[in-house]
């Protein structure tokens, strides 16, 4: 009896099939059309500037030489990659990104491991640990530059003076001019301060998704705390570390605020975004600035592709469990 019902159902659904498909199609359009203005707006706002940049990057276009405007082929890219200042900017960018990402990942891992234990006031501590990431980058950079690094009234030198003062030698306390003596490091430290919470959040999420029974199994198998970290926690965190590193890299490659605010690109701290800014607004060489911009985008896309692959592998792991 159930077979007969089944066949009847299938025939009915086949008959409905054609009608419902066209109905569905018109329904889809009814839903999509109101979205079109927003879609077009989004494309205009996000994609057109990029297309324009791409076109300009192949042009000889300098505001100081308006008569020489024209198609330049790969000349801009050649000059970006061979020009000493630009090459230095690329190297600075890599150095800045690698240092900031590596150190903030390491610090983030330490903080995440500490926050993974339960203790009184954990929620409050976690919130406080996150706050640096919530501060507007320009404001944070200004704070570091003036409130901390300033040799006259900055907190760092004030603390040095206070500590030396405890031993009655306030006058002989070292008073380094932080930004002048270690320009790139100053920028890096401020960036690390802001990015450690981000890494910590990602790693903490990773730590808390650790399957508890696996850890218990390892304990029964005789593993101590270090061995559990080495053989269980660390391999589990690997994807989260990759994700943190890649997302952090995407943002820090593009970082402009800190370099602009703290050093204004001086003393060998000009990274690519800052060099682009200089080429555009000071040299008014729109073609070369656009070419450098395209280089940054290509670099970012490379990193982003890796990042997306990591994220999707995380999801795969999650569903297969």
């Amino acid at each position: 009896m159930s077979v007969a019902v089944d066949v009847g159902d299938r025939a009915a659904s086949r008959r409905q099939g054609g009608a419902s498909r066209s109905l569905r199609r018109s329904g889809d359009w009814a839903r999509r059309v109101p979205l079109l203005p927003a879609l077009i707006f989004t494309i205009v706002v996000t994609q057109l500037p990029f297309v324009a940049t791409l076109v300009i990057s192949f042009m000889n276009w300098n505001a100081y030489y308006p008569n020489e405007r024209g198609f330049a082929g790969f000349a801009n890219f050649r000059s970006v990659l061979t020009d000493v200042a630009m090459r230095d900017a690329i190297i600075t960018t890599i150095e800045l990104t690698v240092t900031v990402v590596a150190v903030s990942l390491l610090l983030g891992l330490v903080v995440a491991l500490l926050l993974d234990r339960s203790f009184l006031g954990r929620g409050a501590v976690r919130t406080m640990m996150i706050t640096p990431f919530l501060v507007v980058p320009v404001a944070a950079a200004l704070l570091w530059k003036h409130a901390l690094y300033n040799p006259e009234y900055g907190l760092l030198n004030g603390v040095l003076k206070g500590v030396w003062g405890l031993f009655g030698a306030a006058g002989s306390a070292p008073q380094p001019d932080w930004i002048t003596q270690m320009p790139l490091l100053s920028v890096e430290i401020a960036l690390i301060w802001q990015w450690t919470p981000f890494m910590m959040l990602i790693l903490l999420a990773g730590l808390q998704s650790r399957p508890l029974d696996v850890i218990e199994a390892a304990r029964i198998d005789g593993a101590g705390s270090w061995q559990i970290f080495r053989y269980m926690t660390f391999p589990h965190l690997r994807q989260y570390l990759e994700l943190g590193a890649l997302l952090g890299s995407i943002y820090i490659v593009q970082n402009f605020d800190y370099v602009f605010t703290i050093t204004s690109g001086g003393l060998g701290t000009a990274n690519l975004p800052y060099a682009i800014y200089q080429t555009f607004y000071q040299a008014h060489d729109y073609g070369r600035a656009s070419a450098a911009g395209v280089v940054v985008v290509i670099g970012t896309i490379l990193i982003a592709t890796l990042a997306l692959r990591t994220v999707s592998s995380l999801f795969r792991e999650e569903t297969s469990r």
Partner: peptide, 20 residues
């Protein structure tokens, strides 16, 4: 005693295999 000093082996409900 800690689990590792008890000389026991355990089979868990979800097996708790080391995934990596």
């Amino acid at each position: 005693l800690k689990p590792k000093d008890r000389d026991i082996a355990m089979v868990f409900q979800n097996y708790a295999l080391y995934p990596h």
